[in-house]
C-alpha cells in the first residue's frame, strides 16, 4: 500500500491520525465490553436445550457437540476485539510520542 506522490510512484509511507486512532480504540473497547454481556446472556439461553432433551438421546450429544464447537469460537471474539483495542491505543500512544501534534506523515526509504 502506498500513496501516489504525484510523480507516478507509489512511495511507502506512514500516515496516522492519533486522535482518531484513540477513538477507534475506545470504540473497540466499548464493543468488547458489550460483547461480554451479550455472550453471557447467550450462554444462559443456549444451555436450555440440554435440559430439554433426554440425556440419553443422540440429539443431546449432537446439541452438546454443536454448541461446544461454536461457543468456543464465540468466546474468542471478545478477547480478540479487546486485544485489538489495547494494541490500537498503545500504537496511538507510540505515534503521539513521535509527533506531539497528533499527526505524522513520514516517508521511509525502505518501506513500511
Amino acid at each position: 500500500m502506498g500513496r501516489d506522490d504525484g510523480g507516478g510512484y507509489n512511495t511507502p509511507y506512514i500516515d496516522v491520525d492519533v486522535t482518531s486512532m484513540r477513538d477507534a480504540a475506545e470504540e473497540l473497547a466499548g464493543t468488547a465490553n458489550r460483547l461480554v454481556d451479550h455472550v453471557d446472556e447467550l450462554m444462559d439461553k443456549a444451555a436450555l436445550p440440554l435440559g430439554t432433551f433426554a440425556p440419553d438421546a443422540d440429539v443431546y450429544r449432537a446439541y452438546a457437540f454443536w454448541w461446544g464447537r461454536w461457543s468456543a469460537l464465540l468466546e474468542t471474539a471478545e478477547p480478540a476485539i479487546r486485544g485489538a483495542a489495547t494494541t490500537t491505543a498503545k500504537a496511538a500512544d507510540g505515534f503521539a510520542t513521535v509527533d506531539a501534534s497528533g499527526h505524522i506523515d513520514i516517508t521511509l526509504p525502505g518501506g513500511g
Partner: peptide
C-alpha cells in the same frame, strides 16, 4: 447483538484504513 458488534468492528476497520496507514 453480534451483527451490531460486527458492524462496529467493520466501521473501525474502514476508518483505520486512512487513520493508521503503516505496516
Amino acid at each position: 447483538q453480534f451483527w451490531n458488534a460486527r458492524g462496529r468492528v467493520a466501521g473501525v476497520r474502514v476508518d483505520l484504513v486512512n487513520q493508521w496507514d503503516s505496516a
